[in-house]
């Protein structure tokens, strides 16, 4: 499981960066075209003054999913090499706390609905980022399906007994 999850999240990090770096969709009507990247929506929402919507979309589609990938890597890269990272309990706890707020899969459905909605009004041209994003969702879903936190917690506990890993107690008195 550890090897697979490590591999999955290395791939996910690459796909996530690609998804954010290239055009997502282009929409053309009567010779006018408008191109959007992954974060264009957040930018426009912010400019229009819809701060709450902007923050919600930013958190659920960028910050939380990206943090999850990074936390997975920070945890599983050392675990793969047989070490339990010193802040493993904090990382795994944070991971479990933020999980419900990562909504990339829901966002993908939103993309599909929008495409169907817009296709009648003009031409939709999918960008590189749309494909990498779809691949990202698939690979993350696979990662989610094989992830089990219990064995990780057991390894953390063993490392805590040896004094290699911090416990949480000092942080929260």
């Amino acid at each position: 499981m550890i090897e697979k999850l490590y591999a999955v999240h290395v791939a996910a990090l690459i796909l996530f960066l690609v998804s954010n770096a290239f055009p997502f969709l282009t929409f053309e009507v009567l010779g006018n075209s408008s191109q959007a990247t992954f974060s264009t929506a957040i930018q426009y929402l912010y400019e229009e003054g819809d701060y709450l919507l902007a923050v919600a979309v930013l958190m659920t589609t960028l910050v939380v999913p990206f943090s999850r990938i990074v936390i997975f890597l920070l945890l599983f890269a050392p675990l793969h090499h047989g070490r339990v990272p010193r802040f493993a309990p904090h990382l795994l706890k944070t991971l479990e706390d933020i999980t419900p707020w990562g909504m990339l899969d829901v966002f993908l459905v939103g993309v599909l609905v929008s495409i169907v909605k817009l296709v009648k009004m003009g031409t939709i041209i999918p960008g590189i980022s749309l494909w990498s994003f779809a691949a990202l969702i698939l690979i993350l879903a696979y990662g989610e399906s094989i992830f089990e936190s219990h064995p990780i917690w057991e390894r953390i506990e063993k490392a805590q007994h040896k004094g290699q890993v911090k416990t949480f107690r000092r942080l929260r008195s």
């Binding site: 919600a56 966002f107 993309v111 929008s114």
Partner: peptide
């Protein structure tokens, strides 16, 4: 979480229909 779909649809439409 699936209720968020509609919020995303609005934000994507807004990003694309911007002339």
């Amino acid at each position: 979480r699936w209720s968020m779909v509609d919020v995303y649809v609005v934000s994507i439409m807004l990003a694309l229909v911007h002339f």
